[in-house]
């Protein structure tokens, strides 16, 4: 069977559709007036909500930072929380900018790559969260606690801080979009957290890269 015959079949299909299919476009008016949610609007809404909640969170952190500014460990911890949150908000704002450039009228590869990139971007935001990990074990350590706790307190606190720091470094360096397919424990972890849509988006990005390659 020659490939021309496939095109002939497709033309025959077209003739059949031309005769028998009708689009009831009187319904189009109703489609326009009803509120329509699209994938792009959902992506935009989630980023806007993230920015609003993030901004409120940063304002609260700044208040707390000001209150604990004379306590070095607490001030540094809250300082790191503020910086990381501001970076995360900045990433969301940048993503909003990218979403605005997405147009279904652009070529398939570029559009789908941008969409999948946005959907998998939560991994990049999570990396910023890992940086904060060690400071979750120090944000409550006041001067008074250090003084009263003494060596016993330090004997417990220092190993915890060390453990959190090592965990943060491992997570920050390894949980990346690129490592999804090379490190099984990352795939297992991501699936375990239920972020399946992120996994699918990252797999699709890999498919797009393969599709773009010339064999």
């Amino acid at each position: 069977m020659s490939t021309d015959e496939f095109q002939q079949m497709w033309r025959a299909y077209d003739v059949k559709l031309e005769k028998s299919l009708r689009l009831n476009l009187r319904l189009f008016q109703e489609m326009q007036t009803q509120k329509a949610r699209s994938a792009l609007r959902t992506l935009t809404a989630s980023r806007v909500i993230g920015i609003i909640i993030g901004t409120i969170y940063v304002v609260l952190l700044v208040f707390v930072f000001w209150y604990v500014r004379t306590q070095p460990l607490m001030a540094v911890s809250f300082g790191v929380f503020i910086i990381c949150s501001v970076i995360a908000i900045g990433m969301y704002i940048r993503e909003l900018g990218v979403i605005r450039t997405i147009s279904y009228g652009d070529n398939i590869v570029d559009t789908q790559q941008k969409l999948a990139g946005i959907q998998s971007s939560i991994i990049r935001t999570l990396r910023i969260c890992w940086v904060q990990l060690p400071f979750w074990s120090t944000f409550f350590v006041s001067n008074e606690l250090l003084r009263k706790g003494g060596r016993e307190f330090l004997a417990v606190e220092i190993p915890i801080v060390l453990f959190m720091t090592i965990a943060a470094v491992i997570l920050y360096r390894n949980i990346t979009v690129e490592n999804l397919h090379t490190k099984k424990w990352i795939t297992w972890w991501i699936r375990g957290t239920g972020i399946r849509s992120v996994t699918r988006a990252m797999e699709f990005m890999r498919e797009i890269e393969e599709f773009k390659k010339e064999d």
Partner: peptide, 28 residues
């Protein structure tokens, strides 16, 4: 492609009521 890849069909589905559909077949 975007529609196919979305797990939940949370998008545009609009019901027009009765038996009305955007696609209608006339000659079967």
């Amino acid at each position: 492609i975007s529609f196919y890849r979305r797990q939940r069909r949370s998008g545009l589905k609009i019901s027009f009521g009765g038996d009305l559909h955007l696609m209608e077949w006339e000659d079967r």
